[in-house]
Design a protein around this nucleic acid. Structure first.
Lengths: 417, 417
DNA sequence: TTTAGAGGTATCAGTGACCGAGTTCCGGCA
DNA sequence: TGCCGGAACTCGGTCACTGATACCTCTAAA
């Protein structure tokens, strides 16, 4: 139960440690404005009195979360002193556990990548070994980044679904054999000593967009994550939708191709059976566009073959292009299902495979989504690519920490240890 | 931008008129507990000090929103005096504008129907006439209910989609010719003098469930509204999802029957083309279960024929039963798409056609949804029928007002006038 | 009948966040 | 140099809440 009170000597421990709610509100306002804001502007925007803004600003300055950056004045009068986020006021570490690759980033307060690294996911089925590898790399990257360890707010982990958010556990994802109910969150918290947050990769990507994506991360949107699988992250009114167990965004079994291939769920033409990279690669192999037939269905192998297919399409092969364009049509249908169900007006694409796909998708998807929109008479639907880049998963993981510590909305999220 | 402050002399007009936030929090706590709560219990639950609870309770008692109702004590000591909502502390009027029928209710604070009435929707294409009819009936039902007009907090309207929530307008719904961008909200506000809220029918139904549905209206759930069309209302963490323009819950074009009939959207086997009452009636006619073929495709006619079909199934006709069971399978697929995308763990069925369908659906849908659940290894998905009854639409409309006035979450919602 | 134990109210000082008004700071312009 | 206007700070007051204390009420058990 949430209520507000004067934070006099705290009774319970259930209140955010970092004092005031309004503090996070104004921090958020500063964060969301590219050029920073002056105190007066803040007063107008958030509705608090100038004095209060001044007081809160001072506290933020004391915590080194913001800095005074230059003055800006037109007419007569004292020029306004602009307040900006202090990039080095806080850092967060993010890891993306992907079946193919482990991505690590250190992010500053602005959401900019200070340092990143990537290693291939150790093969095998022992989660313990992977967790140890991750912990080791985290220590290394923190060291390499040269960041003051005291300024690191915590660690975020993005994992493929399904997960159990309450337990902080990975629950048997398709491509991670051996990972059945593995307490990834607590394992990493223990191994690194950092307070750790966990979320599904697609959700993390959506959080990355809200924190580091600029204007396309505001308000409500759906983040289409084009990875080994296709999933989506959902943000409504600046708040991420996680669902009961953190598994929101499962759209793999939406039917998009009624005449399509049989899926393991018994239906024909699910997203999962007709539009994911592995299937597109198989199509290309069957059509003779990619020579040979790859037996190895492991994640890194698929990734490699898919890159090959994209390169061929890029080079002008029409058949290859057609496969990608076909997938765009199918994905657009899935997007329509979600946008119609939630009435959002922005779709952001991203994920590791996005770079290859962006040209075809950005050409085809907007029109298709618009045509299928139940609200096309009322508002349009914007389709854009993320500005965050290929590391969205890891960046988002780190953003989980920033969001948890600094965002005014954050209700809870289980903080490890 | 939302922020919290001490409600000293208000600056803007953007704060809820009814004072304190914590007041609504404790009102909400009382509302959600069937037997009411004592002051001590409230103190424990919301975390405020006993004195503060006492003070707020007094304010609520002064406003007649709650009453002291009986005492409850086991051991020695003074028994606790229970606080309950005062049903007659506040009332709200709700209208459901359906292509076939206009439903009106007067609700008390508990969400109980004090008075209801129903008239067939006047035929024709002049919204003005319908609005006048509605306004007239509202005046009548308020009079008949014998409720003190000063205690009526406002009017809620539920309309079929699409709507434009910001404008308070109905935007050309399939079965309401002539209703293209009609300012229903403001029209009714003006005609009745009541402050008026508007929402889509399925959203209203979901609100009804949160307010008057008991335990099945808590937390997160999807409300499947079985009406002339099939739509859903979405509630996440006790907050209704409305979307950019109030049109969330459009699931008519989810493909559920890949081999099914062609839909006007160009795909085969959409919910809209294979599971709505009109289609089931047509199937029954084609199969000779319903004699004759109805030319009249108007809403009331379909409603009547569908009731006939249900009666036949009820009477033991296997072919009729099969049609209904078939629709259950299809609807279950649509449900799975939504529950997987949002990771909710409860589905509530309701709407005007629900009574006929409930037996078959409650038998079939739970198993199907469970089997298709992406999170079946983590948590189950509960499938229940609403307790609110056939007037959910109108009840929900009235609940919009209660929610807007009394719920602690309520962000905004455009208040007419 | 007394006593113990619990619920609830009244009062008061103390605290933190907020606001309003007055004051100081800072730059351009006469 | 002095004036003006806008930005930002200082100061005193308000408000809701807490904690402590005292007191009354009510019930069951001694």
């Amino acid at each position: 139960m949430t209520e507000f009170r004067q934070p006099s000597p705290r009774r319970g421990t259930n209140l955010p440690k970092m004092g005031d709610f309004n503090l996070t509100v104004i921090l958020d306002a500063i964060r969301r404005t590219p050029g920073g804001l002056s105190r007066v502007e803040l007063a107008q925007i958030v509705g608090l009195s100038p004095q209060t803004i001044s007081n809160i600003s001072r506290r933020l300055l004391d915590q080194h979360l913001i800095v005074e950056a230059g003055k800006e004045g037109t007419g007569p009068g004292k020029p306004r002193t602009m307040l900006r986020l202090n990039p080095s006021g806080m850092y967060a570490v993010g890891v993306h556990l992907d079946p193919a690759v482990l991505t690590f980033v250190v992010l500053d307060l602005l959401g900019a990548v200070v340092r990143h690294s990537r290693i291939t996911t150790p093969p095998g089925t022992d989660p313990r070994a992977v967790i140890d590898t991750i912990a080791g790399e985290i220590k290394r990257i923190i060291l390499d980044s040269g960041v003051d360890p005291d300024r690191i707010a915590g660690l975020g982990v993005a994992s493929p679904g399904p997960i159990d958010l309450n337990e902080g556990a990975v629950v048997d994802p398709p491509l991670l054999p051996g990972w059945d109910h593995v307490g990834l969150r607590d394992g990493l918290a223990e191994a690194t000593g950092l307070s750790t947050l966990m979320d599904k990769d697609v959700t993390s990507a959506a959080v990355a967009e809200t924190w580091a994506g600029g204007p396309s991360g505001e308000g409500s949107f759906v983040f289409m994550y084009m990875g080994t699988g296709i999933g989506c992250g959902i943000v409504l009114n600046d708040e991420v939708v996680r669902g009961t167990s953190g598994n929101a965004g499962e759209i793999g079994h939406i039917i998009v191709d009624p005449g399509g291939a049989l899926c393991d769920c018994g239906q024909h033409g699910c997203v999962k059976s007709s539009a994911i990279p592995q299937v597109l690669v198989a199509q290309a192999e069957a059509a003779g566009i990619l020579n040979g037939s790859l037996q190895d269905r492991s994640a890194p192998a698929v990734q490699e073959r898919f890159a090959e297919l994209c390169a061929i399409a890029e080079a002008g092969n029409d058949a290859a292009k057609e496969i990608i364009r076909g997938s765009a049509v199918l994905v657009a249908r899935a997007v329509s299902v979600v946008t119609n169900a939630l009435d959002v007006d922005r779709v952001v694409f991203g994920g590791p495979f996005w770079t290859c796909l962006s040209a075809a998708y950005l050409e085809l998807v907007p029109g298709l989504v618009e045509a299928n929109s139940a609200t096309r008479r009322i508002h349009g639907i914007e389709v854009v690519g993320t500005g965050v880049g290929e590391d969205v998963g890891a960046v988002g993981a780190a953003c989980l920490v920033l969001e948890h510590t600094l965002a005014p909305r954050s209700q809870r999220l289980l903080l490890g240890d």
